[in-house]
Amino acid sequence: MGDVTATAGTYGRLVGGRIRADWQYRTSFVLFLVGQSLVAGFEFASLAVLLANVDALAGWSALEVAFLYGVSGLAFGVADLFISQVETAAVHIKAGTFDHFLVRPLGPLLQLSAAEFAPRRLGRSVQPAIVLAVVLGRLDVDWTAAHVTLVPLTIASAVVIYGAIWVATSSIAFWTVETQEIANSFTYGGNELTSYPIDVLGRWLRRAVTFVVPLASIAYLPACELFAKPLPFGLPRAAAWAGPIVAVVAVAAAGTIWRTAVRHYRSTGS
């Protein structure tokens, strides 16, 4: 445990170093922040327009849709803040700086996350967090102890699942460097998908989303449980609780892929 605390401390210091370095370029830092806020504002406006004009989306009320947006958006934002940096592995491999991570007594993933930490990404989580805070009190949910736990559990699992997808897709960089596009189509695309109930999608795509890329567990299945709706495909109610299991499996898979990738890098060189 002491080891985990020490590592977290080191991570914090490294992130601090990165933030101080960014602060050297104040103007660009501030402009980025303004840009991010504008993007977040537009996103919020479009959602507000949608919610104000549509009473129900595929049988879901506006509040329920907002809940889905809040949960998946917040999880995505947190994963974006801490894990999306893994995408820059390609840049570090090209520049040869990945070698520096390997000669220090810390995991390269942790160092990458700290070295490329961008506080401006915090903006991504603020929006959904506000939405979530607003809708949670107004939703018609039977707030049993189990239901209360389900919300943070779902968010935490979702962060982990998004992170795992990011790590797994970015690992391709170790074989071929131009991977950012592929990784983005999974992550950013995935976020768009889980912001809306999957009923609006076609049946086949729905299947794929539920079973192939387990994004549905991120917000949809738990939402069905909370709003007392039947789960799709006659899944048992317990499936709403599958988030943490999916997260554990995703982490194990992503970890294996990442380690294989780093090993591949070390056996092929830059």
Partner: peptide, 16 residues
């Protein structure tokens, strides 16, 4: 982008 002394301080933590 950081003062030289900051690199040393960060490395102290990395190498514990």
């Amino acid at each position: 982008d950081l003062p030289l002394i900051d690199s040393f301080a960060l490395l102290r933590h990395v190498f514990r």
